[in-house]
Structure formats: structure tokens, C-alpha cells
Design a protein around this nucleic acid. Structure first.
Lengths: 333, 333
DNA sequence: AAGTTCTTTGGAAACGATTGCATAAATTAT
DNA sequence: ATAATTTATGCAATCGTTTCCAAAGAACTT
């Protein structure tokens, strides 16, 4: 059983030393004789000693693990963000526990409880679509538990945040459509409570304004997470508002929208244009064509992880809260 | 600081008992007086006592965590499989640590080392595309560390495995194309070392055979993980082999293939048909149309997790290795 | 009434590592 | 040569929990 995990005690016994000496030798303490150090190091290597992270965790109440809560893994934006988080975390010796809220506040609370009970050192989170407040998070963060938000963030000032420049992204997308001669641009978006919805709407409005188009509320549809609801909204919109373009603010809604189009409007949509706000890596293969505002998902994840880990590893209580805003780019199809 | 974690010792002190009594009371031991139990339970609830999982882990050398190694998260098949794994694991009180091999054997080895060092109780893995043998895994599994494979599995008999019925899926897809009148069906697939490649090729051949079409090796292309290589192979194939349909065995290759088609063959492809072996949830939106063999990814993940957890939780060393084969279905676009 | 059993509780070791403190031996200073 | 200092090591507590063992007191037996 060469895999039996060997402990300090085993090494101590084998070398006729005490565990404290072995421990210090391995950490290269100045108190230990060079010869002893060498002997210990050699033997430890030979038997492939690996410190037991659990014992360490118990000792200093740190797990070297961080939690991540996202609405869904099966979403390109989030899986790319997670890649960024993992790369940063692993390279710094942390591991990552991923949870999905499935857009449910209840699940999000549960995830938090779970991660906290598991004693992760901190949490990265992108809020669920039904989380209207963050009391469930304040409860933890106010007691010195580190939380960093990314993508979908709360208004509360007292948090670190990493977001895309949603206003600019939405502005650029809308402007592009306008420049293509579109006048009645429908805007399909997520629940109003989400920061991303508000900011993207703002970009959309600004672009209209800049180009002298009157904002028409009836072209805007907020959709929850029930597909049928989205289908109906989109259907109504096409029937009654006669849009010539769509600016759709999530993967999910873009797909809902295409679903409707394919089933019911094959004939009408020839000169409609579609813009999304997605990280679908296959959007260029869609017909009708779907251009999208692409967010630097990987980068966002990495930055968020970096902020969290920096915070965890700095002694001083850094009271300044960073908000990092990353630029998006347009991918025209 | 209402969040300060409370320990058994705190409860003991507050109630003037010993920690052992408190511990036993909470676990409802027969030795403890009913009144004492009640008092302890009440107080524990009041102060929201949650046992420290790290202390437990240290004690019984179990972390209630399982590791998952997949090539990529940002792939619908795997993220769906992970959903299945997580649902099963969380519902049984385990958490999940996810690692990505990025199709690299080296990374896969590292992932394994990492998970083992972190003392996860077992591992679920889908092999990387460059893992030609599994010595790096045998080393662990031979020493009583539980490993369950899913999707991309080794030949080795002494493992639990959960796979899709790749042969049947490939057969059905190919047969469908044949029935649509296709005669020269190209087959683009992953490295030959992978179980999925071999099995899907087998299904493809069988279908041809069944329908009296001679298998033509030059219609088959194995592609590694370099996109340029894939582009070239597909390009050559179209130029020199005049295929009238494609059966493409992965998300990645399907995308590579479409890349080539869009850039260079817009005119030629009108009557070509395309079949994939993917869990892309948007394949019906592609043009040219992409039908696909859909695997029960969620179910596969769940079953794999179930087998692993059952194994972890059963005392007896179950020497029979299960191989579960789940059926696929065709999604025609 | 003395011994036996049952009920209920506490003490202490264990899991694996770190670390403050004590101490023995070796070296240096006076 | 003796005291002071340095060098090198070990002991024991700690983190939070479980569990084996001991034990005190109550209740029972004969």
C-alpha cells in the first residue's frame, strides 16, 4: 500500500525525531540543524510526504477553498468566468467549490449556508435573477466573511465588484442597429431588479437619444424565467409593435426569442436584425444572424478571484471597495 | 458577532456539561438522559450550532467531498453532466470539486494529485483526449481509492463506468443520413485512443454495412485538438472526397467543421447534411442545419455520482464492476 | 445489607499539524 | 573553570469532534 498517506509522526518515528522537529525541518526553520533538515527533507521526499490540508485547516481555521455561486454552469458566460476563477485560484493554491442557484433566491441562500458551513474562506457570487435584496449575504459579510460580486451585482456600495461595462456595450449594440437603419428596436431583457438589466437599458436609451429616436416603452419587455412567459411577450411584441430589430440581453432570452421566430415568423423576419448580449461561442452559426456584445468573461472571473484572494491574504482590513469595470466588444454576424 | 461559530465546548460550558455529553446528546445516544438531551438540543438550536466538518474530516478521514475531472466545463455535455453529479452529491450531503484537464494528460495527472492531496473521498472522471493509458489513475485506484469513469472510459475492466450507447447512437445517426439518400457520409471524429471514437466509428460502420454501403476509409478523419489541423482535414475531405453528408463526433469538431463551411463552401453545401454527436442546446438554430445525437448527460452524471457514493458508503468491498449504458436519442433539425 | 446492575456523566486519547516553552548539550565569554 | 549564551531538540497544548474507558450514584437483587 504505497499510497497510505504518511504523516509527520511516521517520519518522526522513522528518523527517531519528534514531530515538532520534523515539522520545523520541513518548514526550514532556523532552529534546526542543517543535517537534520537534509535528512528529513530527503526522507519526506522519498516517502512522498504531503501535508494533510485538513489538519492545517483545523489548526488555522482556513480551508484554502473559495466558493462560487452562479445561476447556471451550463451557460457560456459563467463557464468561461469559472475558468478564469479556477486559473487564478489554483495558481495560488486554492480550490474552488462551485454552486448553482438556478436563478432561485432560496437555492442561493442554501448555497451560502452550505459554503459557510463548509468553511470556505470566501465567496464569489453573481446574483440569481430572483434575488431582490442581499440580506442573506449581508448577514455573513457584515461579520467579516469575504464576498466579491461579479456580473450581477447589488447596489450596495460596501462590496468589491467586477462587472462589464454594460452601459457602453448596450449603447454600442443599439447604435450599430440604428446605423443599419433600424428604427423600432425591441429590447428584451431580464428582471428589472438585476443590475445588468438596468445598465443595459440605460445604454439602449442613451443610444436612441443620441440618435434622435424617441424611447418607446412598449418596445421593452422584461422577462422572468418562465419560457412560456417569454414566448408570449415576444409574440405580442412582434404582433403589435412591428419591431425591425431586437436587442436581447441574455443567452436564455435570445434562445427563447429564436424559438418563437423559428416556429412562427419564418416569413416575417427577413429584414429583422438581432443583437444579443451573450457569450455564446456559436452565435455566428445562427440563422437569422445573431450579433452579440461579448463580455470578457474569463477576465471577469479572474479579476474577481484575484480581488478575493488578495483580500483574504492581506492582514490589514482593506476598507476601500474596488469596482472594476471591464470593456465589452461587439461580435457582428 | 452573532456569526462566531459555536463549538461543542461552548455549549458544554454554557450548560455545565462535558463535551462528550453534549456530543452524545446531539447524536441522540441512548446513554444520555432525556432531559439533558432536550436541554442540549434546545440550546444548540438557539445558538445555531453547526458541527465543524473539518474536525469531522480529520477524525474519520473522510471529507464528504468528491472530485470531478472533465476536459472542459464550457461544453454543454459536461456542464449538464456536472449538474447531474451535483444534484446527486448535494442531496446526499457531499460537495463537489471540479477540475478541468483541458484535454491534457499532464493536467489530468495534476488534477488527480490535487484532489487526492485534498483528500476527496473519490473521483469521477471523463478522460482527456490525450490520455492514452491510465497508469496515473491505476496508481491510486489500486490502493483502494474509488474512481468511477463516465463518457470517456478506459478499456480496463476493473472500473465502474457510465457511458452512452455510442454504437447505437452512431448507427442511428448514420442510418438516418442513409435513408435521406446520402451515400458518401464523411465521418469526423476525435483521437482514436478514446473509447467514444472507437464506438461511434463502429456504429457508423455497422450502419453502412447494414445498408450495403462499402466502408471507405478515406471518408474518415481523426482530428486532434489543434483547430488548424481540423480545418485542413475537413477542407481536404471536401475537396477530394466529395462527401454528401457529415457525421461529426464532437461539439468541438462540429464547430470546426462549420467554421470551414462558412468561410469557404457557402455555395457547395446546399444539399449536404450534417449530423453531430453533441449536447449543444442550440443546434437547431444553426444553418446549415445540424441534427445531433443527444446523450443523456444529466442522467449520466447522476448515475456516475450515484455509483461512486454508493460505493463510498457501503462497507463491503464490492468487487463487481458495473457498466451502465444509457440510450441516446436523435434530435433532427 | 451487601453485592450487582443500570443509568448517566466526565476524562482523556485520537485524528495531523503547528508553535510557545522548556531543556539538554555545545559553544563562547569572562 | 564557571557562567552565559547559543544551538538543537522535545514536550505539550491547540484546533473541534468522537469514542473508549472509568466511575459515581441510583436502583435493583437476593
Amino acid at each position: 500500500m504505497k499510497l497510505e498517506t504518511v504523516t509527520l509522526k511516521d517520519i518522526a518515528k522513522a528518523l527517531n525525531l519528534s514531530t515538532s522537529t520534523v515539522s520545523r525541518a520541513l518548514r526550514d526553520s532556523y532552529e534546526i540543524n542543517e543535517n537534520t533538515k537534509k535528512k528529513v527533507a530527503e526522507y519526506a521526499k522519498k516517502v512522498r510526504y504531503v501535508p494533510n490540508p485538513i489538519a492545517l485547516s483545523l489548526k488555522d481555521n482556513k480551508t484554502k477553498a473559495i466558493g462560487v455561486i452562479v445561476p447556471e454552469i451550463a451557460n457560456n458566460f459563467f463557464s468561461q468566468a469559472i475558468n478564469g476563477i479556477e486559473d487564478e485560484a489554483y495558481s495560488r493554491g486554492y480550490h474552488v467549490v462551485i454552486c448553482q442557484s438556478h436563478e432561485s433566491l432560496e437555492r442561493e441562500k442554501e448555497n451560502f449556508r452550505h459554503l459557510f458551513a463548509r468553511k470556505v474562506d470566501g465567496v464569489l457570487i453573481s446574483l440569481s435573477g430572483t434575488s431582490k435584496d442581499i440580506n442573506h449575504i449581508l448577514e455573513y459579510s457584515e461579520n467579516d466573511f469575504s464576498v466579491v460580486f461579479f456580473d450581477r451585482v447589488p447596489e450596495n456600495e460596501s462590496f468589491h465588484k467586477v462587472v462589464a461595462n454594460n452601459v457602453a456595450g448596450a449603447f454600442n449594440a443599439t447604435e450599430y442597429l440604428i446605423k443599419q437603419g433600424k428604427k423600432r428596436i425591441a429590447h428584451i431583457t431580464s428582471p428589472q431588479s438585476l443590475s445588468i438589466s438596468q445598465e443595459r437599458l440605460e445604454g439602449y436609451r442613451k443610444a436612441l437619444e443620441t440618435h434622435g429616436i424617441v424611447f418607446d416603452e412598449s418596445l421593452v419587455k422584461y422577462c422572468g424565467f418562465d419560457p412560456e412567459e417569454a414566448f408570449l411577450a415576444i409574440d405580442n411584441l412582434i404582433d403589435s409593435q412591428n419591431p425591425d430589430a431586437f436587442f436581447i440581453c441574455s443567452d436564455r432570452l435570445a434562445l427563447n426569442c429564436y424559438e418563437v421566430l423559428q416556429k412562427r415568423y419564418e416569413n416575417k423576419i427577413n429584414d429583422m436584425m438581432f443583437f444579443g448580449f451573450t457569450n455564446l461561442n456559436v452565435s455566428h452559426l445562427f440563422r437569422p444572424q445573431l450579433s452579440t456584445v461579448v463580455q470578457p468573461a474569463y477576465e471577469m472571473g479572474m479579476q474577481a478571484a484575484k480581488i478575493l484572494l488578495d483580500k483574504l491574504e492581506s492582514k490589514k482590513k482593506n476598507q476601500e471597495y474596488e469596482k472594476i469595470v471591464l470593456e465589452t466588444y461587439l461580435k457582428i454576424s
